[in-house]
């Protein structure tokens, strides 16, 4: 464990909690892409299958349980509790365009052709594109509430911090996880455009971020 990975996990946790609290307190999921949240729940489900088979550390186990619980709770709020506020018309991204290539790629590129490893690889590739429906929805509505942009900021920051973690681990322990690094770089690049808007628009204190 190093400070970059810890900061990354905290940033990830903060993002998930920001979104969950926003939906719960406003009792609405307007402007939130349910599809992205479903994809994130799928990412955690396929990645944390080793939760009960491999014990790595208390931190590892606790964080996996927390991420699974919060992501399913978010999906529950969107599709069940506050489903009448779900904006399905604007959440129209065709997720099959993400799932098919990700499934295909995880069968082509993996460390071992075992169910656990192929599913882990699937979760890594899926996480890189899971935010697409949300970013698409924001471009479609042309705006995002500032709290949603804070969610996206911390979500994008988490994988950027993981990249720093991989650089650190490469230089200190020679560790290099090619699949996670390549996918993590792609994932972070998808946020760059948003990061620019976030810094130039939202940080100046505007309530909504309207895209050009």
């Amino acid at each position: 464990m190093n400070v970059f990975r810890l900061a990354g996990d905290v940033s990830h946790l903060v993002a998930i909690i920001i979104l969950l609290l926003k939906i719960w307190r406003s009792r609405s999921c307007a402007g939130i892409s349910g599809k992205s949240q479903l994809l994130f729940a799928l990412v955690f489900t396929t990645r944390y299958l080793d939760l009960f088979t491999v014990y790595i550390s208390a931190y590892n186990t606790i964080m996996k349980v927390v991420f699974l619980a919060l992501s399913y709770a978010t999906v529950y709020l969107i599709y069940m509790r506050f489903r009448n506020t779900y904006d399905s018309e604007n959440d129209s991204f065709r997720v099959e365009f993400l799932l098919v290539p990700v499934i295909g790629l995880s069968f082509l590129e993996h460390y071992a052709f075992t169910p656990m490893e192929v599913l882990w690889t699937f979760s890594i590739f899926l996480e890189a594109v899971a935010i697409m429906p949300q970013l698409f929805m924001i471009t479609k509505t042309g705006e995002a509430e500032s709290i949603t942009t804070h969610y996206l900021f911390f979500l994008g920051l988490y994988r950027a911090l993981y990249i720093a973690n991989w650089v650190w681990r490469y230089h200190t322990e020679g560790f290099f996880d090619q699949i996670a690094v390549v996918s993590g770089v792609v994932q972070t690049i998808f946020y760059c455009d948003f990061f620019y808007l976030y810094v130039t628009k939202v940080v100046q204190g505007r309530s909504k971020m309207s895209l050009p």
């Binding site: 990975r5 996990d9 996996k64 991420f67 993981y162 996670a180």
Partner: peptide, 10 residues
Amino acid sequence: KEREARHDEL
């Protein structure tokens, strides 16, 4: 070992 090192990340 390699797998362990990989899967200790969230």
